[in-house]
Amino acid sequence: MTAQLRLEKVTPDNVLDACRLKVAPEQERFVAPVARSLAEAYAEPAKAWPRLVYDGDRLVGFVMAFLDVRFGLPGPPDGEDPLRSGLWRLAVAAGEQGKGYGRFAVDAVCEEILRRGQKRVTVTWAPGEGGPEGFYLRLGFRRTGEMSGEQIVGEMDLPRG
Rank of each mutant, 00 (worst) to 15 (best):
E44G: 11
R29L: 13
R51I: 04
R6P: 03
V34G: 02
Q97E: 15
F141V: 01
R89N: 13
G86P: 01
A18P: 01
G128P: 06
T124E: 02
R29H: 10
D107R: 11
G130S: 10
R36N: 14
Y42E: 11
G140N: 01
K9E: 07
K22R: 15
F141M: 02
V121K: 01
V63I: 07
R6N: 05
D17A: 15
A65G: 02
R20G: 12
P74V: 12
L38Y: 09
R29N: 10
A43T: 08
G128Q: 05
V69D: 10
P33F: 04
G61N: 07
R103W: 01
R115H: 12
F135R: 00
A41Q: 06
G72Q: 04
R103L: 03
A65V: 07
E111H: 11
E26N: 14
V109C: 00
L90T: 07
R51T: 04
R115T: 10
L90Q: 02
S85A: 10
S37F: 05
V34C: 03
E26D: 15
A126W: 15
G72R: 03
G117T: 00
D81G: 15
L73S: 14
L114P: 04
Q4D: 15
D78P: 10
V63F: 00
R116K: 08
V31S: 07
A108D: 09
R84E: 07
A126M: 15
L83M: 12
W49S: 05
K99Q: 09
R143M: 15
L7D: 09
D55C: 13
W125I: 06
G86A: 02
A93D: 11
E112M: 06
N14M: 03
D13F: 01
P45S: 02
L83N: 10
A39H: 11
L114M: 14
I113N: 00
G128F: 11
D57Q: 08
P12N: 00
L73I: 04
A93F: 02
L16T: 12
A48I: 01
R142M: 13
L83K: 10
R6T: 05
A35K: 10
D17W: 03
A35V: 07
F71Y: 14
A35M: 11
F141C: 03
V31A: 06
K9N: 10
L7N: 06
Q27A: 06
S37C: 13
A43Q: 15
L59C: 06
L114F: 08
L16I: 12
E80C: 13
D78Y: 11
F104K: 04
P132V: 03
G131I: 12
A65I: 04
R103T: 03
F71N: 14
G56E: 06
G95P: 13
D78F: 14
D81K: 12
C19S: 10
A46K: 12
F104S: 07
C19F: 13
Y42H: 11
D57A: 10
P82L: 07
S85Y: 06
Q118F: 08
G131T: 08
R142G: 08
F66S: 08
C110D: 06
K47Y: 12
L59E: 01
V69C: 09
V121A: 09
V23W: 05
A94T: 11
P33E: 03
V34T: 04
S37I: 02
A35N: 03
G131S: 13
D55G: 04
P45W: 04
P45G: 08
A91D: 04
A105W: 00
